[in-house]
Computed example of a mutant assay.
Amino acid sequence: MKKTLITAAVALLGSSAALAEEPIILKVAHFWPPTAMSQQKVLEPWCAKIEQESAGRMKCQIYPAMQLGGTPPQLIQQVQDGVADIVWTLPGYTAGRYPSMEVFELPFMTNRAEPASRAAWHYYEQFGKEDFAKVKPLAFHVHDEGYVHNNKHPITKLSDFRGLKMRAPTRLTNKMIAAFGATPVAMPLPAVAEAVSKGVVDGYVLPWEVIPAVKLHEMTKFHSETDKSMPSLYTALFIVAMNPAKYDSLPADLKKVIDANSGADFSASIGKAWDVSAPPAREKAVERGNEFAMISAEELGKWRKVTDKLASSWVKEMDGKGYKGQAMLDTAKSLIQKYNAQ
């Protein structure tokens, strides 16, 4: 009898030890296909790094293409509610909910994504914490230069936008499209290919990397790029966010692993991944024989005069919501300039 009890106790202890060694699985959700750069060049290496630095005690289970259900605009709520432990999405998919970080989506704000993404994190630390108090941000970043793509005709001047229905990702990019004379149509990335194929929209604004990821290069005729001497026509702001309760549940040493792999450096590394992604993605459209146009610096100067009004109205809107609009705009520009120079 005593031997049986000892055997049972040993088995119980062994079982408890095994349970204690079970790794913590982080559910990571996003809207891109699994073949996209964002998963293969950013999320997968990041997950491998936290697994290595936690000695295998933390691992990711990645759910691409909205595999946990819902729509891309619901991702930020999913991480807040704990449906996912970590998400990667655009705050701008929920228009008006996170106004403090919108400043990075104003036209002609950025050049390269890497320095602008580092700037975005430091800007968040000054102005964005209240807006994002219900999630734990791990990174903020922007994509590289956004261009204009359509199926009607080459776009090289403002008048070329007239009569076009153009998709844009966020509130401010839609305002930009409207200011240019086109009809803006808001939709998240996964809906764009179908909208283009069915003629719901005539074109869209996107950076190069995502175009072959959703096969848009196969259904687009004309691509209009901007003179490199000018700032980017536009960019969009992204967040990698964690559920606060999940983070709080981690042991102190595992929290340190998450902390060491989030913040300004992680943000900048994502921006860098976008910067280097453009040439190979662009080549896909070249190989198909699509038509390319270059918008001159002189012409872009005219576009910039039009969009300067968007910045002024954004400042007034922020002031009306109790934010410090001009200080936010000035700080964003200053930080971008600072990190561009490094």
Rank of each mutant, 00 (worst) to 15 (best):
M58R: 14
G271Q: 02
V185D: 04
W314R: 11
Q342G: 06
M176W: 05
G325I: 11
P107V: 05
N243K: 01
I295M: 11
V185L: 05
A179E: 03
Q80L: 03
K134Q: 10
K165T: 01
P154L: 05
M1T: 10
D259G: 08
L12Y: 00
L189D: 04
A241M: 05
R57S: 11
V28Y: 15
W88Q: 02
R162A: 15
E130R: 14
E22A: 08
T35S: 04
K49D: 03
V148N: 03
Y98T: 00
K228C: 07
A120L: 14
A55W: 01
L12W: 00
A120M: 13
G146N: 01
S267M: 10
D227M: 13
C47N: 06
D202K: 12
G14H: 01
F127E: 12
N150A: 00
T220G: 12
F161S: 03
D308F: 06
N340Q: 13
G92Y: 06
Y204V: 15
P73N: 07
V87L: 13
Q78L: 09
M101C: 08
S100P: 05
A191D: 11
M328R: 11
A168V: 05
Y124E: 07
Q326I: 02
E317M: 09
R288D: 09
Q74L: 10
A9K: 15
M66F: 01
A268K: 03
S269L: 06
Y123R: 12
P154C: 03
Y123H: 10
E44D: 13
I155T: 07
M66Y: 05
Y339K: 08
A178Q: 00
I76V: 07
V42K: 02
L68D: 11
E287K: 15
S15K: 04
S197R: 15
F31W: 11
I336Y: 10
T170L: 03
G146H: 05
M101G: 06
Q126P: 08
M176H: 05
P169T: 14
S100E: 10
Q74T: 12
D330M: 10
A18M: 11
V210Q: 09
M187I: 09
A17H: 03
M328D: 11
W32R: 13
A341G: 04
W46I: 03
P279C: 00
V148Y: 06
A55L: 09
S267A: 13
L310N: 08
F108D: 08
E317I: 04
A285K: 02
L310W: 05
S232I: 14
L90V: 11
A120E: 10
L216T: 02
D330P: 12
G92M: 06
L138K: 05
L19E: 03
G263M: 04
A95R: 04
S232Q: 14
K134A: 09
Y323D: 08
A29W: 00
S117K: 14
L26A: 13
T89V: 12
A65L: 10
A11Q: 06
I6W: 15
T235S: 13
P190N: 01
